[in-house]
Design a protein around this nucleic acid. Sequence first.
DNA 1: TTTGAATATACGTATAAGCATATATAAAAG
DNA 2: CTTTTATATATGCTTATACGTATATTCAAA
Lengths: 115, 115
Amino acid sequence: MSPAQFFKCLSDDTRLRCITLLQKEGKLCVCELTTALALSQPKISRHLASLRQCGLLIDSREGQWVYYQINPALADWIFPLIDEALTAVELTDSFTSDLKRLHQMDNRPELTMCC
Amino acid sequence: MSPAQFFKCLSDDTRLRCITLLQKEGKLCVCELTTALALSQPKISRHLASLRQCGLLIDSREGQWVYYQINPALADWIFPLIDEALTAVELTDSFTSDLKRLHQMDNRPELTMCC
DNA sequence: TTTGAATATACGTATAAGCATATATAAAAG
DNA sequence: CTTTTATATATGCTTATACGTATATTCAAA
């Protein structure tokens, strides 16, 4: 992936919020991201698919749920940029809201699996 | 400017090469950028205009030449991202070529002004 | 093996981006 | 003035993005 292609991944608000939320939280399933961002499921899924196809994210199915995370095998130059992107996005109101909705979410899959 | 808007500025190869070259060299006129990137003048000018309009670059006319530089009045979160972008882009072949063409350029305005 | 929840994809459409070519403006030189 | 160099913009075109809606797929549970 070229630098410009990487920045294009971050150039859409929905994708940027997904990536930075994953950078902060580690691993989230589609329904958690859908709840956190308060957007339609197909919209989230389509953006996650494009990020998977370009290699920025990897997915893993666990039962009914498909979890996404940042690909740990990315080129070295990408990680500091993702870090700085998170630092920048953490200053925004929408990211604060996203985090709040995520943490207030009922029936989060991980919680269910623990019981 | 939102983080996503900022990343959109970097998401086009031509704009990214302009921005990183300006980050490294400080201040360049349109004809220097045109030579360095080996692209058409209208193409460079159009991208510089869009970067000026979103506030990422500022321009200043000096005689015949219009110089562009990174806007020093940008929000704080932007500068580390530009730094990391340069670090990433410096690893690419095209950036090496851009720098080489710039430094080999004949009749660079600054040099002419010095004599 | 049917039902429901989670996720993915297809399709049509609206909008935005990017490009090449041509032309316009602005300053300097003759 | 007229020309030349540097830069900006307009126009017409093609392609890419993003979206909503509808539908398909996958898994688990009953």
